[in-house]
Structure formats: structure tokens, C-alpha cells
Design a protein around this nucleic acid. Sequence first.
DNA 1: CTATATTTGCAACATAATTGCATTAACATG
DNA 2: CATGTTAATGCAATTATGTTGCAAATATAG
Lengths: 145, 145
Amino acid sequence: MENKTERFEKLLVKNGLKRTAPRLQVLEILSGRDSATSQPYLEQVMGKDADRVTLYRVLQAFEEKGIIHKVLDQQGTANYAICSDGCSAHEHHDEHVHFNCDNCHKIYCLDSVKIPALKVPTGFKVEHLNLIATGLCANCSDKVN
Amino acid sequence: MENKTERFEKLLVKNGLKRTAPRLQVLEILSGRDSATSQPYLEQVMGKDADRVTLYRVLQAFEEKGIIHKVLDQQGTANYAICSDGCSAHEHHDEHVHFNCDNCHKIYCLDSVKIPALKVPTGFKVEHLNLIATGLCANCSDKVN
DNA sequence: CTATATTTGCAACATAATTGCATTAACATG
DNA sequence: CATGTTAATGCAATTATGTTGCAAATATAG
Ligand SMILES: [Mn+2]
Ligand SMILES: [Mn+2]
Ligand SMILES: [Zn+2]
Ligand SMILES: [Zn+2]
């Protein structure tokens, strides 16, 4: 089995990005989590390994290339998650529901839940849908009960 | 017919808020627009009529009382719109779709469009749904064609 | 009119995000 | 494997958004 770092390096090369430490570190962190990761958390974890500005630029480059996608939580904080297959520089395919837990504040990508089509007033042309559900995630609703 | 300012004054009194210039001005601005209004725009329009901090506090008070609701656009910018009837200090009823035009960047409250119910994975408990559609609004898709 | 609680303005602070520019490092080429 | 070119990083400065504490002003109840 191909190891993780090798996979990440290929991913970078495929997208015309150089194989640098900050980029590999961001991929490493994001891939190790079961929910989307906030910018502040990333900044804290990376600490002095990379400058704040570098982190912003890495995230921006990854988003443009279709490697990660951004979700804003209810407070407007940017959160990032690795895209599932099918996203590219030219088109994102992340039209799944995002679940924002009120308790642990994690944001889950519910890839399995498709957003239902929508009837909008005449004249409006819908391009993308972005559905954020809030409530309790599976973990937290377990603990509460 | 009752004039607008009188209506606003009653609205404030009903919610236990004093009838002050900044509050009336915010209501005036919001009510004169057909789409949600961003915080930066409000700040710019109010100019030196009120301090930035006052604006934030007015918006916060209005939101708590169910007079306005906040919508974050795709960039995470706060936008505000007057609530339709039925919102109060204890409960908002603004589960309509928000339409974010890619061209003019206006955010429309599509009160008529209800958000369809959603099947989420076992364990997840949905409390609220927040659906933002992006694309072209009626005005802009007219102009393009 | 006056007392009181609310609201405002100001100053300071916190955090997220962006820009310009000099330095460094990746890697293609030979 | 050396090296030149280009991409990427680090640092400093700046902008934007939002918050907090506190003193001064003012809306309004009585
Ligand atoms: Mn997602
Ligand atoms: Mn609305
Ligand atoms: Zn949770
Ligand atoms: Zn438009």
C-alpha cells in the first residue's frame, strides 16, 4: 500500500504545485480529521512551522485546484475539508450537506446526503446550493442521552 | 395610512427598546431595500451619524428581539434583513432560502421558498436548516439575455 | 421636572485576511 | 550533480470586522 505522504506528493505534482513542507503539513492535518478544520485551528497546530500568510496562501491554492473546499460555519469562520473525488481546478462538486454541531462545533461533510432540487421564483437561475444544517452530531446526541 | 416612522417607533416600544436616532435610521435603511443589507454598507451609509460600535449594538439588539435576521454571504460578510411576521425574541422563523446573486451580489430572502426536509445519517439531530442558493437573480439574468 | 436605567461614543483591543517585497528553496535543464 | 529560473515562503505593514470597558449623554417613567 502506497503511503500517505507519497499520495500527497503526487496530488501536489498533479496540480502543478511544488512539494513543500507547509503544503504537506496542511494535507497531513486535514486528512487526519473526521470533520472540517477551521483556519484558527490550523494556524494554532502549525504554530511556527509556517507563517500565517503562508497558511492562507496554501489554503487558497488548494481551494483553487479543487483539493480542498471551504465551508463557513455559523459564525462566519472559514473551515476546510479535503474534497472527495471529482473536484478539479475548474469545478468543485461538493454539493453535499454540511452539518454544524451546536455542541462540539464540528462541521461534518455529509457526502451521502444530496441537496434536493429547489423551485425558485421566475427569473432566478440557481447555479449552486449550499445547505448548512445545525443541531447535534451523532457523538454529541449520544452523550446527551 | 400610518406613516413609516410611527410604525418603527411602535416596533421599538413593543420590544422594550428606546426610540433613538441610530435605531430608527437602521430600520429606515433596511426597510427601503429589496434585499438584505451588508454591515459594511450600513456602516458606510450611516457615516458619522452613529459610531461603528453603536451600529453593531443596534444590529445585535434587533436580532435578539426578532426584528431582523442575519445572513452570511459566501464571503462570510454579515447581511441583515427585516424579519417577516412571526419572529420574536424567543424564536426566529426565517427558514426560507437565501439567494445570493453572483453578479450584483444582492442577497434575496425567498420567503416563498421553503427548505425541504432532509434525511441525515443515524444519530444526527437537525435543529435548523440554512440554505443559500447562488446564481443569477431575476434582474441580472434579464440583463444578461 | 427629575431620577434612573438605557444607550451612545470613544479608546483600546482582538482576530481574520490581504499586499508588497526581499529572501529562500524546489526542481527542470543541461 | 551543479545551477538558473520560477515558485513559494517569511516578514512587516495594512485593512477590515467585531468586541469590551467605561464615562457621558439621553430617553422616558413617574
Ligand atoms: Mn464538505
Ligand atoms: Mn431572510
Ligand atoms: Zn457534536
Ligand atoms: Zn443580481
